[in-house]
């Protein structure tokens, strides 16, 4: 502390409360080092194509555009050694007319990465009157990069109507074959009585 800290005639109460408030603000900003280094590797390779969603302990989120998602995923697999997908989630955002597809990636082969889950997210356009498989709601499939997404992407296709280009088996998985309503996990599909 510098010697010139002004000790005014202000009451000692305010001096005491100040550091407490400051601590609370500082602690969440500190980003874990290892996670940050992983995220920086991706950013240094792709630059402005990708953005970092957040860096938390054991969790990194990387947002990519759907045109680049195959390259980003291949880089994450080959250079960062994430080798499988834990889940593929579609999140519907009707206000911004987008559907977000979120891949949660993990690693079995690299012991350092065992506790890390990398969230790779991309956004696809959403149409008000969906026609799954025949409208603009589509993105490249990551099945050739991560083999384990095969059934997850099939689920995402039927539940959100996101078509995955290049997926070998774009059939329904959980829904009945004669389902003719809109994809049920979209926000405009309501539940009776709610």
């Amino acid at each position: 502390m510098s010697s010139e800290t002004t000790i005014d005639e202000k009451s000692s109460e305010t001096v005491e409360t100040k550091p407490e408030i400051a601590k609370k603000e500082i602690t969440p900003v500190v980003e874990p080092k290892f996670e940050k280094s992983l995220a920086e590797k991706v950013v240094s390779k792709f630059g402005t194509i990708v953005t970092i969603g957040f860096i938390k302990p054991n969790r990194i989120r990387i947002n990519a555009k759907k045109e680049n998602i195959l390259d980003v995923a291949t880089f994450i697999r080959d250079e960062l050694n994430f080798d499988h997908a834990e889940s593929v989630t579609g999140v519907d955002y009707p206000k911004s007319k987008e559907i977000e597809v979120v891949y949660h990636l993990g690693s079995y082969t690299e012991p350092q990465l065992a506790k890390q889950v990398l969230t790779l997210a991309t956004r696809v356009p959403r149409e008000d009157i969906p026609n799954p498989g025949h409208d603009s709601t589509r993105m490249p499939s990551l099945r050739d990069v991560f083999y384990s997404v095969e059934f997850h992407e099939r689920e995402c296709f039927e539940m959100l109507g996101v078509y995955f280009d290049g997926h070998p088996d774009n059939r329904r998985l959980l829904l009945p074959e004669d389902w003719a309503d809109i994809p049920p996990f979209r926000k405009d599909f309501g539940i009776k009585g709610r």
Partner: peptide, 22 residues
């Protein structure tokens, strides 16, 4: 590993991965 299996299926194939430990 490639198929992204988990639990007893993964651990019976020689991969040491248990969330409780990792």
């Amino acid at each position: 590993i490639r198929l992204g299996t988990t639990g007893s299926v993964l651990r019976s194939a020689g991969v040491d991965f248990d969330v409780r430990k990792k």
